[in-house]
Write a protein that binds this DNA or RNA. Structure first.
Lengths: 148, 148
DNA sequence: CCTAAAACCTATAGTGACTGGAGCTTCAAG
DNA sequence: CTTGAAGCTCCAGTCACTATAGGTTTTAGG
């Protein structure tokens, strides 16, 4: 069935990224070097396709490459170093939850705007205030403005 | 009360970013040029603080600067050009929903890993497969691999 | 008032994560 | 066996910051 051995361009199209991006990921060791044809062209398999698709989605969600690297490591580490995988999963889960919380409040605000717009005009737009709120975020820069 | 007029360093600390980042945002026109002291140092008010906080959170959520610019425009445009604001809000809402969907499935997978780990060892890690799934994403690169 | 450290200024260069282009080679359809 | 699309390497450019150099302003202490 699906052991494809597709060239780089097809792989790029299948995940919606540029050819050079794939070569770049290989260069920085995020993707393993694929097999090559006699003429030194890259040929990819099913696994590569999945991995790359994962990387692209994670990047679109705003995870930095180090976090992506960690998440990728989860599947390699899973059945070797359980404790390590557990720690990574736990940490990334917290990050994911924070993102969801922020996006949820932004969503509510956008929905509110679209609902209230039917009246006639929006009196006040609270989109900025919604996401400006520090209550949901990780950093400890709350109340930094207090002293002096 | 709170019409602060704080220097750039304090503003940076209050939102958890670098001083240069603020100057950069001013340079590219994302933040308005603030008032200056006699000695040409920047002094910021409450509104700037909110706006910057919003920008930082939006960026952490992975919105590119053009999208951030659009979201910022929502509040300016809100009571002037209603139709335009509506369109922006609708488009951004879709983007937000897609992000939430992807993050939710990633969360389920991470949670599943943490639950099942208690047995003894994780047999298979599906984190990558979860986020590799194209069903939830916007682009039309589904089934690109079909022909030939 | 005066000074000295901390924070500010501009300008420029460097980094991370790509993206594009030049110039050449390989692959595959006819 | 040709020929045009797609691949290759290498290098330069972009976006969104981040760091450094070299100088000025603020502000707290004496």
């Amino acid at each position: 069935m699906g052991e494809l051995s597709i060239p780089i361009g097809k792989l790029a199209r299948s995940v919606g990224c540029k050819v050079q991006t794939i070569r770049y990921y290989e260069q920085i060791g995020l993707l393993p070097p694929p097999i090559r044809t006699a003429g030194a062209q890259r040929r990819y398999g099913e696994g590569d396709q999945q991995k790359l698709s994962f990387i692209r989605h994670a990047r679109e969600l705003g995870f930095p490459l180090p976090a992506v690297r960690e998440l990728l490591a989860l599947s390699d580490e899973a059945d070797s170093d359980c404790a390590k995988a557990d720690g990574i999963a736990r940490r990334q889960l917290e990050a994911v939850n924070r993102r969801i919380a922020m996006l949820s409040s932004l969503r509510s605000e956008l929905e509110r705007m679209l609902r209230h717009r039917h009246g006639h005009r929006i009196r006040e737009c609270r989109v900025i205030a919604t996401l400006a709120d520090h209550a949901l975020c990780s950093q400890d820069h709350h109340a930094e403005l207090a002293e002096s």
